[in-house]
Amino acid sequence: MPLAPTQMLALLTEPDDVCCLGSARNFQAVGYHYSDFSPTADEEVVQLLDAAARRLHRVLAAKGPGVEEEVEIPSGAIGLRGNLQLPARCDGIEVFAHGSGSGRHSPRNRFVASVLQRTALGTLLLNLLTPAEEVNRENVFDIPLLARRLMAATRWLGTRNDTSSGLVGYFGASTGAGAALWAAAEPGARIGAIVSRGGRPDLAGPRLAAVRAPTLLIVGSADPQVLALNRRAMALMRAPTRLEIIPEATHLFEEPGTLTQAATLAAEWFSHHLLPARNEESAPELPQ
């Protein structure tokens, strides 16, 4: 629900979960909490329903048989384990560069991937480090190593018939964001868009100015140190870059509704830059 009286929320014990964007002790009336509480015109409702129907038809048609499989991607002497999910028609695919203490089984990353999949985008969640390598914290911050493996996964996608023609985007979290930007700055890299969630783009250092892909930086307002680092990195970038600050979100976006906001922003960014021909039909279905 968007709004509720504080005392009423405390009485809700039967639901498994309650998500309320705003509450007030002196609630009075719903309209008091909106800057614009005017009714929606019938014509606008019809347009919205028609647009939703078109999106649903496109998503159902695109899913078709699709692909959902466990993969192993060669990178030097090791194999990177990943989860690949593709719609029947794959015009764009996001490769997840996980950060410190995260991986392809992370609930947060899988949730974000599910939101992207609703826009008929493919996703590849993979571990850039082996379990043995993760024990050594130095590897987690070895940005060149993570970037090389991210590039290996990108090249591997180019060898598959079902992904070779689609645009590739990078979704990076924590140190993975630095690796994504490092890899995207490589000469000849053809990365369509980048999204960083609570990331460390500053770790890409001198390579930031060489990044050409449109980049979205998402940071929580309650994560001041990382926010400052993102602003510093943004000042060094020449590619189209936007900073989105999620109110009251901390580093892991654990506060109610904050991860959904970040995922929706990412879906809109990737849809716009990787699926430009679909225009307004590529708008993501918001999680319910």
Score class of each variant (00 low, 15 high):
L208G: 11
S165T: 14
V195A: 09
P206C: 01
M151H: 14
L121N: 06
T258R: 13
H105M: 05
S221L: 05
P256Y: 08
A185H: 08
E14T: 12
D162R: 12
I218S: 01
G101R: 06
L11N: 11
K63M: 12
P39L: 02
R232Q: 13
E268F: 02
P65F: 09
L116N: 06
A152H: 14
P201H: 03
N279I: 12
R212V: 04
Q7S: 15
G199A: 05
Y34V: 00
Y32D: 13
A189M: 03
T260C: 09
G188N: 10
V226A: 12
D202I: 02
F141Y: 14
L125H: 02
G99D: 04
G76W: 06
T163R: 08
A177M: 09
V46E: 14
N26A: 13
G76I: 09
T154I: 02
G66W: 03
L124I: 11
K63I: 03
Y34H: 01
L80E: 03
C19A: 00
H98E: 02
F141T: 12
T264H: 00
R190Y: 01
P39I: 05
H251R: 11
F141K: 12
G220F: 13
S174H: 03
G122A: 07
G188V: 10
V71M: 03
R108L: 09
G101F: 06
E68N: 11
K63S: 13
V135M: 00
V46D: 12
A173Q: 12
N136K: 08
E70H: 04
L259R: 03
L229I: 01
V219N: 06
R278H: 10
G220Y: 04
L11M: 11
R242P: 00
S75Y: 07
D142F: 04
T260G: 03
R200Y: 07
P201I: 09
L217H: 03
L3R: 06
A209P: 00
A132E: 15
V168R: 08
T130W: 07
G166N: 05
S75V: 08
